[in-house]
């Protein structure tokens, strides 16, 4: 007999050990997320996937699905607050979409559109952040890093390397590269690594591939992130 929990009034089947978000995505229900990626160890830090589980706020990407849970996700209040959390990420870094190569393929931007974000709402931090173009094939623009740690996890879990880490505390957190010089060129990162391609924003870009897909033909130009996510992430589950 299949076990189920209730998401926004609909029964969602799950298998033991699945998190709420994985079961929901398999069942075709999108829950906004940025730091979550199917097949990677859950992180639970961006908090976009915050849902109400039996009335309590929980991260859908880390909370284990259990029989009979009552989960609310697609409510006006939660989506309004998710928009605010997205706006926090926008003002924390320096996200200038019109000049960013990732525009149209960027999950941060797409989530912003999905949640109806029309401005940044909060005061900007305008924090000075670095750019590392030392590597022959990959560049990093820390202005766009949202600390999702997907590159950290990809390097460790998929590439068998340890190229990236998040260092420091609080608002001063930053992405660092694992080399004595601190520069990307002195790490063992290769352009074919998963870590070089997993970034949801334009913080890690492959050189000499800019605008190969023209604006207008990109992931989120004609589909919402909900539609794209369900297509891509269900596939990666084999679901």
């Amino acid at each position: 007999m299949t076990k189920t929990f209730i998401l926004d009034g609909q029964p969602i089947p799950f298998s033991d050990g699945q998190t709420i978000i994985d079961a929901a995505l398999d069942a075709g229900a999108y829950i906004p997320h940025l730091c979550h990626h199917s097949g990677y160890t859950p992180h639970g830090s961006c908090k976009l996937c915050s849902v109400l589980v039996n009335g309590r706020v929980c991260s859908a990407c880390t909370f284990p699905a259990t029989e009979g849970l009552e989960v609310l996700s697609h409510t006006e209040e939660l989506n309004e607050d998710r928009k605010r959390i997205t706006q926090m990420l926008f003002v924390e870094g320096n996200h200038l979409c019109p000049g960013c190569e990732k525009s149209g393929n960027c999950k941060l931007q797409a989530v912003g559109y999905y949640l109806g974000m029309h401005d940044n709402h909060f005061m900007h931090f305008f924090s000075p952040r670095k750019l590392d173009a030392s590597h022959p094939d990959v560049m990093i623009d820390l202005n766009r890093c949202i600390f999702c740690t997907l590159c950290v996890r990809a390097s460790r879990e998929k590439d068998g390397k340890d190229v990236f880490a998040i260092s420091g505390r609080g608002i001063n957190k930053h992405l660092i590269a694992n080399s004595a010089s601190g520069l990307l060129k002195d790490t063992d990162l290769e352009a074919s690594d998963k870590a070089a391609h997993i970034c949801p924003t334009g913080a890690i870009l492959i050189k000499r591939t800019g605008y190969a897909t023209p604006i207008g033909a990109r992931d989120y130009d004609h589909q919402t992130i909900a539609e794209v996510s369900l297509e891509q992430e269900q596939e990666s589950h084999g679901g």
């Binding site: 830090s45 908090k47 959390i85 926090m88 924390e92 505390r169 608002i171």
Partner: peptide, 22 residues
């Protein structure tokens, strides 16, 4: 609190600093 936030999650990392600024 803004000084002591570990910075792991968005609402606390950004939020405590926004709170301080505000």
């Amino acid at each position: 609190f803004a000084h002591e936030s570990c910075g792991f999650c968005t609402p606390c990392r950004v939020g405590t600093s926004l709170l301080r600024k505000q």
